[in-house]
Design a protein around this nucleic acid. Structure first.
Lengths: 367, 367
DNA sequence: ATGAAAGCGCTAACAC
DNA sequence: GTGTTAGCGCTTTCAT
């Protein structure tokens, strides 16, 4: 397809021929370093040195080349460059989205934005892979790592399988996890799940609520575990009996397990007067069931939800929430990865960011 | 740094030497096609043919190589490959996020997810660039196009500058726009903005509202223009006087211009009884101002907003909204780009997707 | 300070 | 059917 050199002097097979290569620049495609070199009347090697701020180039020459480069808007071919320098200039980000929800919630989008912006500052590109299901994670993983397309990786650790994590670890591939992995200990960033949950629960307790239950996600996730722990701690401090109801996250189809879980909470046992909703995804379900049962919020049941959203402000009642510093989390993840890639391991292996409580109406504090 | 070949026979400079190259495989890095070739006792060329399903390989050999490849988990180096095939196997996506809002709204995240998933099906990677401001778009643009890192591009056309768009056009670079550009005519996908706006307005009119105003974004955007047009059409059909109030989108800081715009709408002129909010971003402001003025929704003013969100269901009143098929839009954008990249231009230059009205409480239809 | 040339890992044209 | 080799566009010794 691409025209290789036309027979120069009939010498194509004899090994003695000094591999003439193309002597003159005559192509159709984009500019190459040769073109620039020819026009600047220097060798490609010199242009390369200029472009890479390497020493050994006269300032007069350097200036001339630089001008030309600017004028021609020449940019070295990334593939050719990475082939020789053995770096791609990209990082990978793998994020899960179970159902259409995760991407619609603010968590991943904001995280991603933070990472992308930060990466851009360092002249790194971001290769994004989304994974629909946990099985999907594997293919996302290989598609992004296959062929050494990235120099480092940010992964949502909770959804990542042990196998892949171990693989990365063994390879010594630079990566950081967002959220703790149930399987491996490695560099990661996370929010203070236990602390935030404790904060939320204490807040409800401080408002005089006593029968405070927790609606939690699937037990397998470390974040869920930590939030349950924080809730438990607050309850036990107050000498109260914890009551945790787990449920699955919203799936792509089928009846939301959250609804059933809330039903169970409301129906069984003695009446609640407080509810800590352990994940933003679960809040709508909790509100819906409460409304259906004629349970007033915050009058009958005071409610705090983990993970904030701008729109909670416009719910009725406006939701009191534990706000996570998602943007900071993304920046921290990138910074950690960047350090790893630069061969300077960050000081701390786990960077845990604090949460804060945003008090609105659903907890009854303003009532 | 990387160990080049150790002097084989002292012949390093004489041009007669047949460029011996490395004969034996002995390195530290990842597997190369040579390694596989050696182990399979075939030539690299043959391995390459197997990997690319090229003809001219015996089925016995093919099987042996394939087994080995699988067993070794060998993947060809992407950079080396793209250098010779002149394709990167990646597409770029540039999305704007003014303030932290855009990414928090469902539009871009869902669009991005759709594109990414679709790309994965075609074994294409997605290089993501976010642009904070309109000036930022330019650097995002160059960073992603610089060095030919992608084979095609999806861009949010409204925020893209004329200069960049023209550049792409002139280069003949495959790209599709999401939303129409004010500057150039090119392949693009969009929702039926005018139709959706008309739908919303007619709905309000059909409910008996007569003094229906529209709260719209900045005039410069084609989508805003189209929505205004749809609104106007519906009003004029009914023989009513249109009343449009423009405002800027939410900025990173400063008082939201939306608030002021709504104030103006409510204060000036004769009392409204209907409001068409031309963009999801503006809905919270409209509700806030209405509440502050003691304007009941839908009792006093019936409201419909363009662009739906799962959480609107939990607003009070639940928001009636024009729902855009964002996921489909993303898929359509990718499909169009893929066709372009395959050299088979899509049949239609503009793919316009229909919207539908999601009736909830704010329009008063259920009252 | 500059240029020549080797070679990164792969594919494609051609020879056998 | 299989091996050989040139060369993609760049960086990087090494010689000059």
């Amino acid at each position: 397809m691409s025209p290789r050199r036309a027979g120069t002097t009939g010498s194509r097979k004899k090994k003695a021929a000094p591999r003439p290569r193309r002597a003159t620049a005559r192509h159709g495609g984009p500019l190459t370093i040769r073109d620039v070199a020819v026009m600047a009347a220097v060798s490609p090697g010199t242009v390369s040195k200029v472009l890479n701020d390497a020493p050994g180039v006269g300032s007069e020459t350097r200036g001339r080349v630089l001008d030309l480069v600017r004028q021609l808007d020449y940019h070295p071919d990334a593939a050719a460059r990475s082939l020789v320098v053995r770096r791609t200039g990209s990082i990978g980000v793998i994020i899960p989205h179970t159902g259409s929800y995760s991407m619609a919630s603010a968590y991943w989008p904001v995280l991603l934005t933070a990472i992308t912006d930060r990466a851009a500052e360092r002249d790194l590109n971001v290769l994004l892979s989304t994974a629909r299901s946990e099985e999907d994670v594997d293919s996302a993983y290989r598609s992004i790592l296959r062929g050494r397309r990235v120099d480092g990786l940010v992964v949502g650790a909770e959804q990542f399988g042990q196998k892949q994590l171990m693989e990365l670890l063994v390879k010594g591939f630079p990566f950081v996890m967002v959220g703790k992995s149930p399987f491996v200990s490695h560099w990661c960033v996370d929010v203070d799940n236990a602390g935030g949950a404790c904060l939320a629960t204490r807040h409800l307790l401080g408002l005089g609520r006593r029968r405070v239950a927790m609606l939690a996600g699937p037990e397998a996730y470390p974040s869920v575990h930590d939030r349950v722990e924080g809730y438990r701690r607050a309850m036990e401090e107050a000498g109260l009996e914890p009551r945790v109801q787990h449920c699955g996250y919203q799936q792509a189809s089928g009846a939301p397990p959250a609804l059933l879980a809330v039903e169970q909470l409301l129906e069984s046992g003695p009446g609640l007067d407080g509810l800590f909703v352990g994940a933003g995804d679960l809040a709508p379900a909790a509100l819906a069931v409460a409304a259906r049962h004629g349970v007033g919020i915050p009058k009958d049941v005071a409610l705090v939800v983990f993970d904030d959203h701008p729109y909670y402000d416009r719910f009725t009642p406006a939701l009191t929430a534990v706000s996570q510093p998602i943007h900071d989390l993304g920046q921290a993840a990138f910074d950690m990865l960047f350090a790893l890639m630069s061969g300077e391991p960050p000081e701390v292996r786990e960077r845990i960011l604090p949460t804060r409580l945003v008090v609105r109406d659903s907890c009854g504090a303003r009532a």
